[in-house]
Each structure stands twice: as structure tokens, then as C-alpha cells.
């Protein structure tokens, strides 16, 4: 089938067009490979350097003081999950509802202001967001806390979730919305049960991108969640997280900590990947089942 199509091409295309086609196709292929190089080499680098430090202890033990061999960063893994969970609880619902508002009432002046603000917010450096939350929560509560870290990450997620939700809702054909309205379905129900439902898989992808980005943020956490050497006990205490732990260990002078930092980097990448795959699987499953 394929070879037949190719032979037809070869007969039909004059020489010049054939060459142009080949050149452009090759260029596209080369560009694609070039774009993949950083991603693949990064993964390779992290795996090669991190795999050595990976151990059961790393995933289950608390950090040990300098000089004592072994120990792990289980508290940082839990901490990252807690922080991302907190951020998601605030950022995802807020972002999705904002996206719905922008898509449904996008012509109003308020919507234009909101959209512009979201775009500005997504351009704000994450360390500035960290400083803002420091002033807002850490100073007033008089302590670094997991909640403050969660809020900082939520603010970073918000514009991504809102704008991707808006764009995906706009992609849902008007005909589906009209079909629901013409059946005597009130507008809010049509939006939730038909439009949002149809766009759900795409929105989930946008949300996952935001979550993945939040999971890897370091700068805003330095000012808010700080770090901790112990298991998280309360949300109004400082909490450890993988990125901050990686940062702390990587700038330390100790060989053992460097090894652990690489291993932690691998864990973080794996964590984001697992979250991503799980979310995709969940959404596809739910959409098919219905």
C-alpha cells in the first residue's frame, strides 16, 4: 500500500518538486531530532548519575546528619506530594472555574481584564511569587509553613490551568452547546455536562502540565515552605520538598549528599512522569466508560 503510493508519487512528481519535498522533509526530521536531543540527554544524564544513589533507604529513611552514612529523603518525597496536593486543591478548581468564565463570558470587559491579568501572572518569575507569598503569609503568620508553599505553587499553576481550560472549552464546537440548549437544558448545565465534559481530556493534560511544573519549582518554596529534616506533622510548619532538598544537597560540599541529590532528581522526574501517566489513564478510562 505504502510502496504503491510512493511509486505513484515518483511517477507523478517532476524532479524539482521531488527534490524540494525531500529537502523540506529532511529539514523537519532533523529539527525534530534536534529538539529531542536535550530531552533525551537530560533523561540519560539524570538516570546515569542518579541510579547509583537510588536505594530503598533513600525512599523510606529520614536524612541523617552530615558524616553519618546512609539516610534518605522520604520526608521530602512526602513533602512534595503534600505541597503539590495543597496547590492542586486551591489552583485546579480556581483555575478551571476561571477558564470557564473566560470561555463563556469572554466578550465582557471584566473577562478581558481577567485574561490579561492571567497572562501577566504567567510571565511573573516564580521567585517573585515566592517573595509575594512570603510577605503575605510567612510574615503575618510569623513562620514558614507548608500552607504558604502550597499557596505559592497554586498561584504559579493558576494562569496555566485557567488559560488552557479556556482554550480547550473554546475548541468544543458551538453545535454541541446549541444541541444541549435546544433540548431545554439550562445554560449552566449545558456548560458543565456537555462542554466541560467534551473538553475534559484536553483540560486534564493542561492541568497535568501545571502540576508537573509546580512539582519541580524550587525558588518559591525557599521563601515559603523552607525545608525540614523531619516528617511533616502539621501544615503550619516548614516542610521538606524534593526540589529544595536537591538544591540544598547539591550546593553542599559533601560527596554523599551529591549522590543523594542526583538520586532525588531521578525520583522527582519519575514522580512527575507517574502523575502524568496516571492522570491520562484516569481521564481516558472515565471518558470511555461513559
Amino acid at each position: 500500500m505504502n510502496s504503491r503510493k510512493n511509486s505513484v508519487d515518483r511517477i507523478a512528481l517532476p524532479g524539482r518538486r521531488k527534490i524540494t519535498d525531500l529537502v523540506v522533509r529532511t529539514l523537519c526530521l532533523v529539527a525534530t531530532l534536534l529538539a529531542l536531543v536535550p530531552l533525551l540527554s537530560l533523561l540519560q544524564f539524570v538516570i546515569v548519575r542518579g541510579a547509583g544513589g537510588l536505594s530503598w533507604d533513600l525512599l523510606t529513611q529520614l536524612p541523617r546528619p552530615v558524616g553519618e552514612p546512609g539516610g534518605g529523603m522520604a520526608n521530602a518525597i512526602v513533602g512534595t506530594l503534600v505541597l503539590v496536593g495543597l496547590a492542586s486543591c486551591v489552583g485546579i478548581p480556581l483555575g478551571i472555574t476561571t477558564g470557564i468564565y473566560l470561555a463563556e463570558y469572554g466578550h465582557t470587559r471584566t473577562a478581558r481584564v481577567v485574561r490579561f491579568s492571567a497572562d501577566v501572572l504567567s510571565g511573573v518569575p516564580s521567585i517573585i511569587v515566592g517573595m509575594f507569598v512570603y510577605g503575605l503569609m510567612v510574615v503575618t503568620m510569623k513562620r514558614f509553613s507548608a500552607v504558604a508553599g502550597g499557596v505559592a505553587l497554586a498561584i504559579l499553576m493558576l494562569p496555566t490551568v485557567a488559560r488552557s481550560t479556556e482554550e480547550l472549552l473554546k475548541l468544543v464546537p458551538t453545535s454541541l452547546r446549541e444541541a444541549a440548549l435546544a433540548l431545554g437544558v439550562p445554560r449552566w448545565r449545558a456548560t458543565l455536562r456537555v462542554v466541560l465534559r467534551t473538553a475534559a481530556p484536553g483540560i486534564a493534560t493542561g492541568v497535568m502540565l501545571a502540576v508537573a511544573r509546580a512539582a519541580g519549582e524550587t525558588a518559591p518554596l525557599l521563601f515559603t515552605a523552607l525545608n525540614s529534616r523531619f516528617w511533616p506533622t502539621s501544615l503550619d510548619r516548614p516542610i521538606a520538598s524534593l526540589p529544595v532538598q536537591i538544591f540544598t544537597y547539591a550546593i553542599s560540599p559533601y560527596e554523599e549528599w551529591h549522590r543523594q541529590a542526583w538520586a532525588a532528581a531521578l525520583v522527582l522526574v519519575a514522580l512527575v512522569l507517574i502523575l502524568n501517566v496516571a492522570a491520562r489513564f484516569f481521564v481516558r478510562h472515565r471518558t470511555d466508560a461513559r
Partner: peptide, 15 residues
């Protein structure tokens, strides 16, 4: 509810 409508392009709900 009382006045139903059928559109130009068939638009069943895909989900």
C-alpha cells in the same frame, strides 16, 4: 422544551 430543534449538521453528543 416545547419547541424542539434539529440542526443542519448532525450533532449527537460524542461522549
Amino acid at each position: 422544551r416545547r419547541v424542539g430543534m434539529v440542526f443542519q449538521k448532525p450533532n449527537p453528543f460524542p461522549t
